[in-house]
């Protein structure tokens, strides 16, 4: 790890100010960034720890019923406190392992946008709103390809607002060594229609499977997907699975998610 200065602000205002320094980077729970620093894949001059900023932690219900989760809330706290959105709580409870869940945060996961991370699927399938210190970003505008997002330099995710669906489920096919999603599918059924978001599969990162959404909006049953073919083109191909294999898994995990959501 290269040397860097470290700041530990206790207010959002101080964190924003610290991030204004040259070559500064935010540190959420560090469960991805610290290993990246060790591998010298990242080498900021200054790290700004967000774990001491209490005002971006916690879970609340907004007046419109949306479940709002502070960007600095750990996976363990979401697993324990997001009972109003059971599929989201279940997703958080199955990220990494218990020690990782005690440090890793929803904001950190979204800002990193790992193509195999779980939270991006929940945010996209829920049509959630990502709130930062400067603006609100719709999920459909937030994710911008593998490890890329709409976030600007120095922008901090302060909250994520999830409209709570009528029914939902996240199904993850784990890569057995890393336990990241080889493919994960989040299905959410709203009065306005069904949304299906897929992580782990595409070279473009998390994406919506629009054909499946249309079919499931007509009939919310696994059989509604019969006849749909998802191409393996553009899917991640590595030693764990070919693009065609991942495309097949997307279909299987979507069916399982629909069946589990009921």
């Amino acid at each position: 790890m290269y040397a860097f200065e470290i700041d530990r602000p206790t207010t959002l205002a101080d964190a924003i100010k610290a991030l204004g320094a040259e070559d500064a980077q935010a540190l959420g729970g560090g469960q991805t960034l610290i290993p990246s620093l060790k591998q010298r894949l990242a080498s900021p001059a200054r790290l700004v720890c967000l774990s001491g900023v209490a005002e971006i932690k916690g879970i609340r219900t907004a007046d419109d019923g949306a479940l709002c989760i502070g960007g600095g809330t750990t996976h363990a706290d979401v697993a324990a406190g997001a009972g109003a959105y059971p599929a989201l709580a279940a997703l958080a409870a199955n990220i990494g392992d218990p020690a990782v869940r005690n440090r890793g945060t929803i904001g950190g996961s979204l800002a990193n946008n790992d193509p195999s991370a779980c939270y991006p699927a929940a945010v996209l399938a829920s049509g959630a709103t990502v709130v930062t210190n400067t603006r609100q970003i719709a999920a459909d505008d937030f994710f911008d390809g593998m490890f890329a997002t709409a976030l600007e330099e120095g922008e901090i995710i302060t909250e994520v607002r999830f409209p709570v669906p009528e029914a939902a489920s996240y199904q993850k096919f784990e890569q057995p060594a890393s336990r990241f999603a080889l493919v994960g599918v989040f299905v959410a059924k709203y009065a306005t229609g069904v949304r299906v978001a897929v992580t782990g599969a595409s070279e473009g990162g998390v994406f919506r499977w629009s054909e499946a959404e249309a079919a499931l909006t007509s009939s919310f049953t696994p059989e509604a997907l019969d006849g749909l073919v998802l191409s393996g083109d553009g899917m991640i191909a590595d030693l764990h699975g070919s693009g065609a294999y991942r495309a097949h898994l997307v279909d299987v995990m979507t069916r399982r998610a629909v069946a589990a959501a009921g």
Partner: peptide
């Protein structure tokens, strides 16, 4: 691997993946 697990404010964490400053 988890060989470095300690408790920080009552919660299990991997001490190799947290800075002392935190």
């Amino acid at each position: 691997c988890g060989a470095c697990v300690v408790h920080v404010d009552g919660k299990a964490v991997k001490a190799c993946t947290m800075f002392a400053a935190e």
